[in-house]
Design a protein around this nucleic acid. Structure first.
Lengths: 341, 341
DNA sequence: TTGTAGGCGTTATCAA
DNA sequence: TTGATAACGCCTACAA
């Protein structure tokens, strides 16, 4: 059976489709009694407006989009689980739907998705995450005047709303913590250099060192890729140095988890022979063995707030152009010796 | 500026919109030269068909939907990261988009989402996961003749396509493995009783015991909720028995991870003092400490194949009604003594 | 090979 | 307070 349309409802009630539409949309120029009849009939007949028709007429989809920075099988960063949960919950509560796609960063597929979503007006707005220093996505969306919000900034002179964690300050804190525990040779496992988060976190690491009067040593730095495997490889490299570091900081928790594994393989007991710390602070970090010292960012809340900003922006609210910077919270656990260590 | 429509392209070329439409859709009754002009003009003008209009006309959205069984902040099961990655990649490669929402199982919100998606034809088909024994979702979708595919079966006498892992056989294998390592008191931490997976895995556990001539002991069984926290709590309960189990099986890896934590807190060394095993086998299981013995299901592939089946079904392909059962693979790691243990 | 016209299901404008 | 009617942008018989 074909879906029931507004026409069916109107016919059944011997009313015009206009009246039905207005009654359902809650206009106040409909007799209370009529409205009641309409609402009841619509419910019993199971009428739900066609998205396509409504969308065509109103020129908006009530959908927001998000693209996961990955494609392929092994994708399990808990950061993104929590992020998506936040986006989804917030979208629902604002009567939006969430469209999700996957694409490797800077791939042709990614560009194609953006073009398609924007040009075909499939979505009304986009949430962009894991920003890059010279992010073509920001450029593209600004150029097309397309509503979007970001998790993190760029180096470009573009104005757009974002929420961001002051990870630079966070990493300074982290270094300070390690120095207080007596560490001088502190290694750093970073992310690809084109990412904003790498620039920030690396800068924080360097600042932390210099604040403690420790000379920066490039040989103690390696590049990871924000995955466990990347952290593992990079950590091995650092641990096999003639004079290895006594502490390692990963650009995120996954990197740190990989580093923990590498340390164990080299016969080191994490938290005693070597200190390891990460960044993100999703639940998983509490459940590594030993539990991971980390900087916690409120991922779920950030996602929710991003959606709120985006929805406001789609509605044309100028206020939504805000740029918010939050402070991460240092959580000290056993991987760096424990709270009282 | 308003988006460019097919009319704009036609006007510019002094052609009818029909010709433009047909040229772009690759019909062969368009002069090669005309097509070329049209394609070029469309590209330079940045024309992309309006989704809403096309959708209204063709009565399909080219969108499939998936609902994450969770709402709230702490949602980080790697199973679902991988599942979504698989859905997203497969959807993209079939020229579909993926709509994602979140809702607690059996909540009012969940029902509402289904009603909305189905009735408003927002999506052309739905992927359903974590099936329940008497699953109203399957009932609802079958009743509405709405295309869907499932990860797992139900107890209902409904015919629908699904892919499923023979987790019953898997758990028998797991018990067998533990028995071979000398365990007789094998505990089980399950999932909520209304879930299909619980029925299957619990049955497999029981079968495994009886095959080994071990009497079933209900006091060695506890109910978890497929989260780490749930596994932790349930494990504590079992470990604090007068005569605690020497081995624990979790209904999934997260449960097992929680159990490992509980064991450590009780001063036990996992893999030596107690054996612990799980189910799912995402990358994370390899990185617990010690690495977790588990039954691996090919999550990413399953997700991809589900999408393929769904797409075929949406296209009206009867073949897509298949019901596939795959075998899980036992992966023995240190948490039960190691491969050679 | 190209063009005309109708309609997909809504919402919104204007009259009645 | 209600109803007729015109779009929204596209696809596709059918006609030319």
């Amino acid at each position: 059976m074909p879906p029931v349309t507004i026409r069916d409802v109107a016919k059944r009630l011997k009313l015009s489709i206009t009246t039905v539409s207005r009654a359902l949309d809650g206009y106040d120029d409909v007799a209370a009694k009529t409205r009641q009849r309409v609402v009841r009939a619509a419910r019993t007949m199971g009428y739900v407006p066609s998205r396509a028709a409504r969308q065509l007429r109103r020129q908006r989809a009530d959908v927001i989009g998000y693209i996961l920075p990955a494609s392929g099988p092994h994708f399990t960063d808990p950061f993104f689980s929590e992020f998506i949960a936040g986006l989804g919950d917030a979208a629902t509560s604002h009567n939006f739907d969430l469209l999700v796609s996957t694409a490797a960063p800077d791939s042709a597929a990614e560009k194609q998705i953006y073009a398609r979503w924007v040009q075909s007006r499939l979505v009304d707005g986009i949430v962009v995450s894991r920003m890059r220093l010279r992010d073509w996505r920001a450029r593209y969306l600004v150029k097309n005047k397309f509503p979007f919000v970001a998790h993190g900034h760029t180096l470009l002179t573009l104005k757009f709303p974002y929420i961001e964690i002051d990870s630079r300050a966070g990493f300074e804190l982290l270094v300070q913590h390690l120095v207080a525990r007596g560490h001088r040779r502190i290694g750093y496992i970073g992310a690809p250099a084109n990412l904003t988060l790498q620039a920030d976190r690396f800068a924080g690491y360097q600042n932390g060192l210099s604040a403690a009067g420790i000379a920066f040593d490039a040989t103690l730095c390696a590049e990871g890729d924000l995955t466990r495997a990347g952290g593992y490889q990079a950590a091995l490299q650092l641990l096999d140095l003639p004079t290895p570091p006594t502490a390692l900081i990963g650009a995120n928790d996954l990197t740190a988890a990989g580093a923990m594994r590498a340390a164990r393989e080299r016969g080191l007991t994490v938290g005693r022979d070597i200190a390891i710390a990460g960044y993100d602070g999703t639940d998983d970090s509490e459940h590594t063995q030993p539990p991971l010292t980390t900087l916690k960012q409120p991922v779920y809340d950030i996602a929710q707030r991003l959606v709120e900003m985006l929805v406001a922006r789609i509605a044309g609210d100028a206020l939504a152009a805000a740029q918010t910077v939050l402070q991460p919270v240092l959580i000290v656990r056993e991987s760096t010796g424990g709270p009282s260590g």
